[in-house]
Structures are given as structure tokens and as C-alpha cells.
Amino acid sequence: MNRSQLGAALRALRVASGKDAKAVARSALMSPSKLSKIEHGKLGVGAADVERILTAIGVSDEAKAEYMDAARASATETIAWRLLKRTGVHKGQQDAKALETQMVLLRLFQPALVPGLLQTPEYMRAVLRCHDLSEDSINRTISGRLERQEVLYDGNKSLRFIITEPALRWRIVRPQMMAAQLDRIISVSRLPHVDIRVVPLTAEQNDIASHAFVIHDDRMAMIETVHAEVVVTDPRDIELYVKKFKSFERSALSGAEMRCVVERVRDGFLREQETD
């Protein structure tokens, strides 16, 4: 089933259900224009979008399984960053928020930077400026990312982060701001449903920290590369990322030990600030 056929099938299901497009779009956490483009085959649709649309329509489990299989037929979707820039990077925050609203378990590995859900506004701005965005786009993306951070306080979810020690030391903002960013990590780590772990430089490794990735439940893995965001929905591929996450989890520090590492790095930045 190609893009046009899947879109037409989703539209037929919606019409048969008697629900109007605006209601389905609202329930599926997307704009009516996006739903319209999907239904008319003008926009590629990932498995996550298909699942949200089917849930909003209210189809049976059997029908949902059938259409989800069709959506996964193209198990890997690549979205070039240049296309995201063209449509608006801030809109990606809306899609991410929709995914995070519906998930129960998030597992995120980040070897290079502080994860977006844990970033301070100053850190966000520095990261986004590396992508040659306009100030308006940066401001709107920061606003969207801050809204996404509300998920950190949802006790019905389990959020698990693994960060490497070099990511804590990557000087993307001034020492004082880096110290504030690390304080933010320490603070969030005390939330009962949030597990933040740090892989120390002294830990012996049996795996390679090649790139960042995030796993939503066991349904989707998203990988960040230099040129694109890759979305994986094939269970066999997702399992590879789950195994990789567990491998780094075994060598990572948690709880008080993790906070000691972060505090040590933070104190180093504070000492630098005092001597400036």
C-alpha cells in the first residue's frame, strides 16, 4: 500500500465513522491541514501518525493492526533536516509533544549534548544557533521545547535518560550557564519517575556511542544523524536500539553516584567563572 492508497483508506475509515476531519485531527494531536494532506496522499505518513489517526477514528483492534502493518511496510523513514527547516523546525516540537503525550516509557541516549527535555532555555538557544536558523524560528522552537518539558512532571510516565560524561562537558554556553544547565539535570533527577544516568569516562565499554537515539515505548526509535532524522518502526530494528540502551545502562551511574559526577563537573565550571 503506497502513500496515496494509505491516505485514501484512512479518509474512508474516517468518513465511515461519521467523524469530521477537525475532530479527528484534534484527537490525533495534529492540525486539520496535516490530516488533509495525509488523506489526499500529499504528505508521507509515519506509523506514529497512522496509529494516532486510527485511535482518533475509533477503529477495531483488528483493523488497527492491519493498517499499522501497512504503515510499517516502509519500516524506516528519513526526514532531511533541510526539509524540516523549510517547513519550520518549531513544528517538529509539536510532533514530538504529540508522541510524548501518548507514550508511557521513554528511553533516550545522548552522547554529545544534554537531551532537549532537560535543557535550559540558554542551552537550547546555543544548540539551535548551530543550525543556521532565524531568530524567529529559534524563539518558536524554544517555546515549543519548553512546553514539551511538561511531560517531565507526568507521574504516569517513565522517563529514562542516559548521558555520557563528555556531553556534560561540551562547552556550548559560558561556564556559568553550563553550571546552571548541570544544576537543572540534578534537580530533574530527583523526580521519582525520572531516571537520569551518566556514563563516566572511567567506565570500561563494550559498545560504541555512535549517535543519539530515543525509543518511545517499544513502538518507535528515532535517530539523529548529521543530515536527517531517521524514524524506525520495525520491531526487529527497535530491539537493536533497546539492546544498545541496556548495554550503556549497565555501565552508567545513577542516583547519588550520578549526581556526584554531575556536581563535580558543575563545580569545575563554577571555578572557571570565579577566575574570569
Rank of each mutant, 00 (worst) to 15 (best):
I215F: 03
K246N: 14
A56C: 06
T120H: 10
T55Q: 07
A8P: 00
T275F: 09
S247N: 11
D95R: 06
K243E: 08
S60A: 14
E100I: 09
S36Y: 04
G44R: 14
R72P: 02
M177C: 05
P121K: 11
L152R: 12
A48S: 13
R82I: 09
A80K: 14
A80W: 08
D61M: 05
A63S: 10
Q149A: 08
Q102G: 08
H211K: 12
V230E: 03
H193C: 06
A112Y: 08
F161W: 06
P115L: 06
G58I: 00
I142V: 14
F245R: 02
M220N: 11
R140I: 00
G7F: 00
R14I: 00
T164E: 12
L29R: 15
V230G: 02
V24A: 00
L13W: 01
K97H: 14
R14K: 12
E165S: 07
K42V: 07
A16I: 02
H216M: 10
A180M: 09
R264T: 15
P200L: 07
L35R: 01
E272A: 10
R236F: 05
P175F: 10
P235C: 06
V194D: 07
V230S: 01
L6T: 05
F248K: 00
S187A: 15
T87I: 10
R107D: 02
M30F: 04
L10T: 01
K85T: 05
D136Q: 10
R148N: 07
E272V: 08
I186K: 14
S27F: 01
D136G: 08
K85A: 04
T120E: 07
G18K: 07
K42F: 06
Q205H: 15
K246I: 04
I215L: 10
L35P: 00
A63F: 02
E229D: 07
T55A: 08
R160M: 10
L84Q: 11
P115A: 12
D217K: 06
V214C: 07
A112T: 12
K42P: 02
D61E: 15
E51C: 08
A25F: 00
I162K: 03
S36K: 04
V242L: 12
D234I: 08
V24H: 00
P235T: 01
Q205D: 05
R125K: 12
S17K: 07
M258Q: 08
H131D: 10
G92E: 09
Y241E: 03
T202W: 05
A28Y: 01
E122C: 03
G88R: 04
A65F: 05
A179Q: 03
H40N: 15
K246T: 10
E51D: 14
E100H: 05
E66Q: 12
T120W: 03
F213W: 09
P121M: 05
L99K: 12
Y153S: 11
R271S: 13
K34P: 03
D49G: 00
S33V: 13
H211A: 09
N139E: 15
G46Y: 00
V230R: 01
F245T: 04
C260N: 07
V226R: 11
T101F: 05
D49T: 01
K246E: 15
S189I: 02
D183M: 08
E274G: 09
V261W: 11
L13H: 01
R125C: 05
M177Q: 13
